[in-house]
């Protein structure tokens, strides 16, 4: 799999590695997918990178590759900003080859990372017709998570036709941030768009939302999909090639 802009892949890894330290990558002719849960089974990430999004892609037989995302992140940190990236696994090999190439082709770096034998659990996530779908700048969402974490461990997300409100309370007191829907969309990237069938009010652990925000550099917009008594789905699109979706179980009344 070759990417002209290897930084896209580095951003994907940075987006996942805090939530899941290691994961099994499923490779097929259609592309690369991954599903992994955090150790406490509170959050899940689902990654799709379709083959057509790569400069070149070939997979002769389906493979499951157990990879340490922490190690891969360290390797990818050595990559130059404009480097291209090629990932390769040879038949019957127990390692993955990560090759980087500088833009003017005067530097070539190769790394081999040992593959791991991982036990992976998968959840069947049905297509869900959410009560509420919010789109907002991902930088704004990151900021809200950061700001709400000052006030408490949990954030209550409430939606109405007018907007969406995030609130948190704790020993210090309480705080809230309300975003109103953008009425005059000039720049789609900066817009707040709320599609609502029913109002929702759900509480989530800020710590996990903040981990999801590590994937924010992938996309200028984030999608939040919510329904009562259902995990939140937080989506960052990966240009034309796929997406990273995070699922987070809500906090419920004791």
């Amino acid at each position: 799999a070759r990417l002209l802009h290897g930084s896209i892949f580095a951003k994907v890894i940075e987006g996942l590695r805090e939530l899941v330290n290691e994961a099994t990558w499923e490779c097929s002719g259609n592309g690369i997918t991954l599903q992994a849960m955090d150790s406490s089974h509170v959050a899940l990430v689902s990654l799709v990178m379709r083959s057509e999004g790569f400069e070149s892609y070939r997979c002769d037989r389906n493979m499951s590759l157990g990879i340490s995302l922490v190690s891969m992140s360290k390797v990818l940190k050595t990559m130059g900003k404009d480097d291209s990236l090629t990932i390769r696994v040879n038949d019957d090999s127990d390692s993955i080859i990560i090759a980087m190439e500088s833009q003017n082709q005067d530097k070539f770096a190769d790394y081999e990372l040992r593959l791991m034998d991982l036990d992976s659990e998968h959840l069947g996530i049905p297509d869900t017709d959410y009560s509420c779908a919010i789109k907002m700048p991902s930088s704004e969402f990151s900021r809200i998570c950061r700001d709400m974490s000052i006030m408490g461990d949990s954030v209550l997300i409430c939606t109405t036709k007018e907007g969406v409100k995030f609130s948190a309370k704790g020993d210090l007191g309480q705080g809230s941030i309300r975003l109103v829907q953008t009425t005059n969309i000039e720049k789609e990237e900066e817009a707040v768009i709320i599609e609502m069938k029913e109002a929702v009010a759900l509480t989530f652990a800020v710590r996990y939302l903040s981990m999801f925000c590590k994937a924010a550099p992938l996309s200028p917009q984030v999608g939040l999909s919510l329904s009562e008594d259902t995990p939140l789905m937080c989506e960052f699109k990966i240009a034309e090639m796929g997406h990273v979706r995070f699922y987070l179980a809500p906090k419920i009344e004791d």
């Binding site: 849960m37 089974h41 509170v42 659990e121 959840l123 996530i125 259902t230 179980a249 419920i252 009344e253």
Partner: peptide, 14 residues
């Protein structure tokens, strides 16, 4: 007070 639920409450293991 609220408690943290887990994903396995909502989705089936496959």
């Amino acid at each position: 007070s609220s408690i943290q639920s887990t994903l396995v409450v909502y989705y089936e293991k496959i």
